[in-house]
């Protein structure tokens, strides 16, 4: 169903112009990533003249991964992203369900809180979080990063989950009540299964957000739990950057994003539509 139409120009020219424009924009959007991928396959000597020369190698990936700290940071980022996503979804699914199904004082106060804290800049609570996790003795440990990471998206995800549940008619749950189902029974057996597509979408988004996150990782971790994004940012600021290794690491860091964009695009779009 085309609605645009190309009234001003003759149809042929209009279509040609459109094709050209959309191709140019798409190329522009993928160019930085494509250039990084190209750089990653160039040998160290060829990296400064990426556009010239035809030698390609896989050695950069092996060399970048050979550093134990790099291996650790990939593992750490993966572990934290997975755990934080699981816990964060577990608490926001119920919170979103409550916001969607119940009206009244408790519901509007909770919604107000979520809205308010969604607006507060991360830096405002991450600076004192350093003091708090230090005092708790969990600074620079998995726990010290995991707990704050669960909290980051509480507000945003409760909001999105509310939207998902709003899209599911509560009629089925009422029917379940009449059949003698408890509140929990109706939630687990009726509402939750219907929300699975939304939960999958949010799982993917949450995992990527946590994998990509930088500020919390920068402040709350150190040498004991290196995180991928922090390691990469340090790379840039070291003198004499090894661009070929940098590019190889970057390509591996984009890996999950590439997989998701190509294979799970529909889910991501669904998750973003609020």
């Amino acid at each position: 169903m085309s609605r645009g139409g190309s009234g001003v120009l003759a149809p042929g020219w209009g279509r040609a112009f459109f094709g050209l424009a959309i191709t140019a924009i798409t190329l522009l959007m993928i160019f930085p990533v494509a250039w990084m991928v190209l750089t990653a396959f160039r040998p160290a000597s060829g990296v400064f003249y990426v556009h010239r020369g035809i030698e390609f190698t896989l050695g950069n990936f092996a060399e970048a991964l050979a550093k134990p700290e790099m291996q650790a940071s990939f593992v750490n980022s993966g572990v934290i992203a997975t755990l934080a996503t699981v816990f964060s979804l577990a608490v926001t699914i119920t919170s979103g369900y409550m916001l969607s199904r119940f009206r009244g004082a408790a519901s509007s106060v909770w919604f107000g809180l979520i809205y308010l804290f969604r607006c507060i800049p991360y830096i405002t609570w991450v600076i004192p979080l350093y003091l708090l996790t230090q005092w708790m003795g969990i600074l620079d440990t998995y726990l010290g990063l995991l707990l704050p990471h669960i909290s980051i998206h509480i507000c945003f995800f409760s909001w999105i989950m509310k939207g998902f549940f709003d899209g599911i008619s509560p009629e089925m749950e009422y029917a379940a009540y009449i059949d003698g189902c408890s509140h929990w029974g109706a939630f687990f057996r009726v509402a939750l299964p219907l929300a699975v597509p939304g939960i999958v979408a949010l799982f993917i988004l949450s995992w990527l957000y946590t994998w990509n996150e930088f500020l919390f990782a920068l402040i709350l971790t150190g040498s004991r739990t290196p995180m991928l994004t922090v390691r990469m940012a340090q790379f840039v600021n070291e003198t004499g950057i090894e661009w070929h290794l940098m590019a190889a690491t970057a390509v591996m860091a984009i890996g999950p994003a590439l997989v998701v964009t190509i294979f799970a695009q529909e889910y991501v779009v669904k998750g973003l539509r609020l």
């Binding site: 798409t26 190329l27 959007m29 930085p32 990527l208 930088f214 990469m232 984009i254 999950p256 695009q265």
Partner: peptide
């Protein structure tokens, strides 16, 4: 192609 930048870590 157009969705790709959204997934890329900002640091990268």
């Amino acid at each position: 192609g157009i969705l790709l930048p959204l997934m890329v870590p900002p640091v990268v």
